[in-house]
């Protein structure tokens, strides 16, 4: 009889042993989970960096980014200089009810205006609230984790290769942040936030 039920007994013994161990339940609403910095929770927008180049809106696999912008002309700062045109962002919205959280928009952004934030607590009772405008997207910026250090031994040239997308032909916005692959510059917007 003991041999006959040995399989069951083994299972029961495991259950009994597990009963004495601690539960691995995470007490979520009381204890916030520790999420890795790459976790894809929500997309944050750093509005100052956006040139409304539309790359993200075009590359999005389900086209859930809406951008409106208009051109403004700045008068020449020096005598006889040329007037410069630049885009002003009117609307930047991401429809999180459509978003598939692939991160392509963040990858293709040539000016580092979009970031992943691990934040996930934004369920709503109205579907229209999931279409988040630039003001809401900007509010996620403080939750963006600091850029992770690159693998230290990696030579700089190879590090740049990690970034897939193309370099912009010319950088119309001097003083903007450099590309992520190049490294040490901290993200603007993260350091002045509490």
């Amino acid at each position: 009889m003991t041999k006959f039920l040995s399989g069951l007994a083994k299972g029961m013994a495991t259950t009994a042993r597990t009963m004495t161990t601690h539960a691995h339940t995470q007490q979520y609403p009381h204890v916030k989970p520790e999420l890795p910095s790459r976790s894809r929770g929500v997309i944050a927008l750093l509005e100052e960096n956006c040139t409304s180049c539309m790359l993200c809106a075009r590359e999005c696999p389900d086209w859930c980014i809406y951008i409106d912008s208009h051109k403004e002309t700045t008068p020449p700062t020096t005598e006889g200089g040329r007037a410069r045109q630049h885009n002003v962002l009117d609307r930047f919205a991401i429809d999180f009810s459509l978003c598939m959280y692939c991160g392509i928009c963040i990858e293709v952004c040539p000016f580092d205006a979009l970031f992943w934030s691990p934040e996930f607590e934004y369920s709503t009772t109205d579907i229209r609230d999931l279409l988040q405008e630039k003001e809401t997207l900007g509010q996620w910026m403080p939750t963006v984790p600091a850029p992770e250090p690159l693998v230290p031994e990696l030579p700089q040239t190879e590090a740049q290769q990690l970034v897939v997308d193309v370099e912009p032909e010319d950088d119309p916005a001097a003083g903007r942040t450099t590309k992520r692959g190049a490294g040490e510059v901290p993200r603007p917007g993260t350091e002045e936030q509490p």
Partner: peptide, 9 residues
């Protein structure tokens, strides 16, 4: 999730 950022996809 640590490497890819997602738990399933």
């Amino acid at each position: 999730e640590e490497v890819a950022g997602g738990r399933m996809h």
